[in-house]
């Protein structure tokens, strides 16, 4: 059974339909990327999975259990976690308090100290800056904090929206490298505009265009595809 199984969902934002008949699966331990240009509906898809938006049709299953229409706090308690677009750290709280807040769901709270150590060893800078207000961190540090905060709930499925947004390539690379270290423990579904990185660090990928899945498959195969290269890599 797939960890995440989405079948034929439609999503509206206000009056306008943004996603049409999206189907997608993620197996345990996989890293899957969602690609697409601005406005394709990538963030909308993640928002729908975590429960910020309700599908008007179709279903979302997590470990075979329907979670369509559940709210974000329920899904987080179940083992999903979203690193939102634009990081959204609690700017007026310290690094350590941001991390603690991530551990709020029971699954995270019972192992908070242990997870905190793991997160700090993944991102040592967070340990050095533990008392600093999150709003005063650099963009890269804030992204590390946002990922660390999501990991604090000990998620099984981590949804990451535009990790690379506004970050220098070396920082992006560093953060991707850390995500790879999580290995089989955490399954990752990531949204990326940086197609080259996304294909490099994922095993499978879906391509969204105007709210529809237009391609899907093995990341390496997609990376060699002439159409994809022309459309997204400018080659």
């Amino acid at each position: 059974m797939a960890m995440l199984e989405i079948t034929g969902i439609d999503i509206f934002r206000g009056e306008t339909q943004v996603l049409w008949d999206i189907s997608l699966t993620v197996e345990k331990g996989e890293r899957v990327a969602i690609l697409g240009s601005n406005g394709a509906g990538k963030s909308t898809l993640l928002a729908a999975i975590i429960g910020m938006l309700k599908p008007t049709a179709g279903s979302i299953l997590f470990h075979g259990l329907p979670i369509t229409g559940s709210r974000p706090f329920e899904n987080t308690r179940r083992g999903l976690a979203l690193v939102p677009e634009g990081r959204r750290v609690y700017k007026e709280m310290s690094v350590i308090e941001n991390l603690k807040m991530g551990a709020y769901p029971k699954r995270g709270r019972s192992r908070m100290a242990e997870t905190m150590e793991e997160v700090v060893s993944l991102f040592p800078i967070l340990g050095e800056r533990r008392e600093q207000l999150a709003g005063t961190l650099s963009g890269g540090e804030q992204q590390m904090l946002a990922i660390g905060r999501a990991l604090m709930s000990r998620p099984e499925l981590l949804l990451v929206d535009e990790l690379s947004l506004g970050l220098a390539p070396v920082i992006t690379k560093e953060i991707f490298r850390v995500l790879m270290q999580l290995g089989q423990e955490v399954t990752i579904l990531m949204v990326e505009q940086n197609v080259e990185q996304a294909l490099k660090y994922s095993q499978r990928a879906y391509v969204l265009e105007s709210g529809r899945v237009v391609r899907e498959g093995d990341s390496r195969v997609l990376g060699e595809d002439q159409g994809i290269r022309r459309a997204y890599l400018g080659m």
Partner: peptide
């Protein structure tokens, strides 16, 4: 307290607090 931390988080960013498992 956890309750206080929840309150502060929610007043800063309600959507993210909900993502962190708070029943807002």
């Amino acid at each position: 307290t956890w309750f206080g931390r929840m309150l502060r988080a929610t007043s800063q960013d309600r959507e993210v607090a909900e993502l962190n498992g708070v029943n807002t």
